[in-house]
């Protein structure tokens, strides 16, 4: 058996091992690849810069902890940005695990800036009922949330949430949807098209959402970890995303190398098979 034939029938475990090696090495010894800021990331930054002080921004965490590595960096950077500019944040969640995960991030950042719960930020969480629940929020925010936040506090008693009657542009300056699938962006586009919508999506969803960007249904679209790294640069709070851009590049290089080698092996072997 020639080396190419062997290569074509390689055990996937070798690929797993190679990948592990290639990803871990640059984490210990960074290379420092550059980060390019795209207009769609800039759009979110500019929007936050132009907001009147004290605006209420709605966060929608429509993701599970599984995709947190892609989404959390932007959430952190954006919270830095919003809290620095004295804006207020209400967090809801279309995914039940998103509610739990994001509340940890929100509490941490709020504590760092000395923000007060119920005045500067609130976390209302997730409710059952999928679209039925979601559509209801368009007309009655507090009723749809069964009147309580995640810890069971009465929403009508907190200064921040007291007057938030509905998820409409009169009450919220905009929505930032942290989306990793369905339900998520599609619900906003379909059932609540009037809200200004900003999206941090996982990289996998970006191609599909491009059609919403073109039709202006989405105002800004940040793509996965790259989006996070770009936003971190814009805000000047370098964090996880910026640090992990190097292994990212190395991983891609490995896959491309494997693809090229695999194709050479395929061509060499099919010539051999044809010759036989």
């Amino acid at each position: 058996m020639s080396i190419w034939e062997r290569f074509e029938r390689i055990n996937p475990r070798f690929i797993f091992l190679l990948m592990l090696f290639v990803l871990i090495t640059p984490m210990i010894r960074p290379i420092g690849l550059p980060v390019y800021i795209t207009p769609l990331t800039q759009a979110l930054y500019d929007w936050v810069e132009d907001l009147p002080p004290g605006s209420v921004v709605l966060f929608d965490s429509a993701f599970a902890p599984g995709s947190a590595s892609e989404i959390e960096p932007t959430m952190r950077a954006l919270l830095h940005h919003l809290f620095q500019n004295d804006h207020k944040v209400v967090m809801m969640a279309q995914w039940e695990l998103g509610a739990m995960h994001s509340s940890t991030v929100l509490d941490e950042l709020a504590a760092e800036y000395g923000k007060e719960y119920g005045v500067d930020y609130a976390n209302v969480g997730w409710r059952a009922g999928s679209e039925n629940w979601f559509i209801g929020l368009r007309d009655d925010f507090i009723g749809g949330m069964v009147g309580v936040d995640m810890s069971g506090n009465d929403l009508t008693e907190m200064p921040l949430t007291r007057d938030l009657a509905a998820v409409r542009p009169e009450y919220f300056a905009g929505v930032v949807c942290f989306a990793s699938g369905n339900p998520g962006v599609d619900d906003w586009v379909t059932y609540n098209p009037n809200m200004p919508l900003f999206v941090q999506a996982t990289a996998v969803q970006v191609p599909t959402y491009m059609r919403f960007v073109e039709t202006r249904q989405i105002e800004a679209l940040l793509s996965g970890q790259a989006g996070g790294a770009q936003y971190e640069q814009l805000v000047g709070q370098l964090g996880e995303a910026s640090r992990l851009m190097d292994p990212q590049g190395a991983g891609h290089l490995l896959i491309i190398t494997l693809m090229i080698l695999g194709n050479i092996a395929f061509i060499v072997n099919s010539k051999k098979r044809a010759a036989k």
């Binding site: 599984g66 996998v204 990212q248």
Partner: peptide, 18 residues
């Protein structure tokens, strides 16, 4: 779509490795 996704999938592991 596939090419764009690989970045995201690698990120997931990087988060764990980190």
């Amino acid at each position: 779509s596939f090419g764009n996704t690989i970045a995201g999938r690698i990120t997931l592991f990087l988060g764990r490795a980190d």
